[in-house]
Nucleic acid binder design. Structure first.
Length: 604
RNA sequence: GCGGGUGUAGCUCAAUGGCUAGAGCUUCUGCCUUCCAAGCAGAAGGUUGUGGGUUCGAAUCCCAUCACCCGCUCCA
């Protein structure tokens, strides 16, 4: 049972030190987050698993760590400096904002024709290519060049707001630069202006030749990189899901370009291969395939560099729902061609990819095909993912609130009655939107039909539905449920051990018994040489277990009186709460077996 | 950036415009405790998001601002 609401996970993260709001003591900084003691371990483990799967376990991928700041020309020729600045316009009446090209695409042919005429009148002889595939692009550029009068023309042409189906009152198109800029050197002159990378991929492309030559690689081969990237997102949010500073794990896989001979693996096949590889990475680490899906982007919405893109999406709890986790793009020969000075078929490729010539580069990013006896620009398949998203997925997926003992009959009865009373009150309520009301009642009925002990952990998710807390009884219900959860349930993160921030926790059964404490500390030290191990004695044994459950520690070791005589300890398993007796001198081999193979972590 | 909502202790919540802003949980200290959030005693934790204003008096009313949540444009 994964988390039933994102808030449960967010709350756990803040409470236990996975993730804190950034710059909190100064009132915060919008959508920025700092990773605490446990968060940093989890993030490291996610990156470690990715690196192992992508680099170590394969023999066709190398690693790289390029700069966050690159020569500005990298971004000029990659298309980010121009292409990512999609002009946006606002409808002053409906307050809706649109990307200019998207807005124009939604207009009728007649409206566009009218707009073309208006622009021609305004700019006298200016040429707009009215060929169907170039019209929108031409209009966007023409309008943008017009600056201040463009909004007026849009309004005059009666450009329709897709939301309201009425002609809008439009602002001038405004450019939104997604890249962070800073200065490279102590003076803030224009020539010192540089950008923080919006993706790590370009650092790989510009190093293509270096890596290929120094590691003696030929396509197919890949280069992987993990590092921070920065984008001035228009709408960051949803906890760590979208932030302006974020860490990426990207791999560029270089393959021979088409045409392909009989039996040769094609770009589409490589693309499909990587989609599957990446999908399996998640399921291997414990994500249920039921909550994962692949989503192919329709041609119209593809990025400027992409021939095809497939997203792996995860169904997050609550209102976020299915959202993009990872993108696997077929970037074709776009990037390597863009950064090459001159290569065979250069003109053809540049025309096909709508790329300008590149007199600034000193390199041709090609490999020499011995069979074909010519220089060839490889194609690229790119699986790219942010570190935070898988982290959030693993947390959501591992999160569980479990009944420890059976719920006392009186409490169970009371909870059932409260829930029924609440639902009745919702149905009768008049200050709820019909849709909201239906959503609450439907979910509520579903819970009411369940065994009450299993339903209670989901009541908090029920009360997070829109409008749910507007009902007076919701507070009473929440109060009761919170109390019952606190006493009868345990929160447990059933993380795959490879992801767990702490692998083993060691406790003394009694903290005021010096011999036990000393031995427990010794045991911790011996295990810490191998795995992330902590010692804790600031509570009764039951509390210590629950604490570790909440942060996903797979095993706890307890030193007791018997340990002093027999040199054995209790090992307690997170998922089953089962205990077994293990000799102290056997602990390292014992955990080596447990932590040697992924299957061991799923014995429960 | 726009529209809507929310801001009281680490968390969940109290407090008619009126006494030193309270309670439970958490955290910490001491005692106790032989395996699943036990008990006892104590402590810490707040410029009520921030800054103004109205008032004899503001957590409460008004204005501004900041942050978060839900939508829109973004797509790792």
């Amino acid at each position: 049972m994964p988390a039933s609401s994102l808030d449960q996970v967010v709350s756990l993260c803040k409470r236990r030190g996975f993730i804190y709001p950034g710059s909190a003591i100064y009132g915060g900084l919008a959508n920025s987050w700092d990773y605490g003691p446990l968060g940093v371990e989890l993030a490291r483990n996610v990156k470690q698993q990715w690196w192992e799967a992508m680099v170590y376990r394969r023999d066709d991928i190398e690693g790289l760590d390029s700069g966050i700041i690159l020569n500005r020309k990298v971004w000029k020729y990659s298309g980010h400096e121009g292409g990512f600045n999609d002009p946006l316009v606002d409808n002053k009446e409906s307050k809706k904002r649109y990307r200019l090209d998207h807005l124009l695409e939604a207009q009728s042919a007649a409206t566009l024709q009218k707009l073309v005429e208006l622009i021609r009148m305004k700019t006298k002889a200016s040429e707009i290519d009215t060929a169907p595939d170039k019209l929108i692009n031409g209009l966007v550029h023409a309008l943008f060049d017009l600056k201040s009068s463009a909004g007026e023309l849009l309004t005059q042409a009666k450009i329709v707001d897709p939301e309201t189906d009425e002609p809008g009152n439009w602002t001038e198109p405004r450019q939104f630069n997604m890249m962070f800029s800073t200065q490279f050197g102590v003076t803030a002159d224009e020539e010192n202006k540089v950008y923080l990378r919006p993706e790590t991929a370009q650092g790989i492309f510009v190093n293509f030749k270096h890596v290929a030559e120094t590691s003696r690689r030929k396509p197919p081969f890949g280069v992987a990189q993990i590092g921070k990237s920065f984008r001035n997102e228009i709408t960051p949010g949803n906890f760590i899901f979208r932030t302006r500073e974020f860490e990426q794990m990207e791999m560029e896989f270089f393959i021979p370009p088409p045409p392909y001979a009989e039996g040769e693996r094609t770009d589409d096949e490589w693309h499909a291969h990587w989609v599957n590889e990446r999908f399996n990475w998640y399921t291997d680490l414990g994500v249920s395939p039921e909550r994962l899906r692949k989503h192919n982007h329709p041609k119209e919405v593809l990025s400027h560099y992409s021939k095809a893109t497939t997203d792996i999406e995860y169904r997050f709890p609550g209102s976020l729902g299915f959202a993009e986790l990872e993108g696997i793009a077929n970037r074709s020969d776009f990037d390597l061609t863009a950064h090459s000075r001159e290569v065979p078929n250069n003109t053809e490729a540049r025309e096909r990819l709508k790329l300008p010539p590149n007199p600034d580069s000193v390199e041709n990013l090609t490999f020499f095909d011995q069979e074909k006896k010519q220089h060839i620009v490889p194609w690229v398949i790119e699986p790219a993912v942010g570190v935070a998203r898988p982290m959030l997925v693993f947390l959501c997926e591992a999160f569980a609130i479990e009944l420890v003992d059976e719920l006392p009959e009186a409490d169970a009865k009371r909870a059932g009655e409260q829930l029924a009373a609440y639902l009745k009150s919702v149905e009768k309520s008049e200050n709820l939107d019909d849709g909201d009301k239906k959503a609450i009642v439907d979910y509520g009925r579903q819970l009411a039909a369940m065994e009450i002990g299993k339903a209670l952990p989901q009541v908090s998710a029920l009360l997070e539905l829109k409008g749910a807390t507007r009902i007076e009884l919701s507070k009473k219900l929440k109060g009761l449920v919170d109390k019952l959860i606190e006493t009868n349930y345990r929160t447990v993160l059933k993380l795959d051990w490879r992801l767990s921030p702490i692998k083993v926790a060691v406790f003394p059964l009694k903290k005021n018994e010096d011999n036990i404490v000393t031995l427990a500390r010794k045991v911790r030290a011996s295990l810490a040489a191998h795995w992330r191990t902590v010692y804790d004695d600031t509570g009764a044994i039951g509390k210590l277990y629950r604490r570790q459950d909440e942060i996903g520690t797979p095993y706890c070791v307890t030193v007791d009186f018997e340990s002093l005589k027999e040199n054995t300890v209790t090992v307690r398993h997170r998922d089953t709460m089962a205990q077994e007796r293990v000799a102290i001198h056997d602990l390292v081999p014992f955990f080596s077996r447990k932590f040697s193979h992924p299957a061991h972590c799923r014995e429960a």
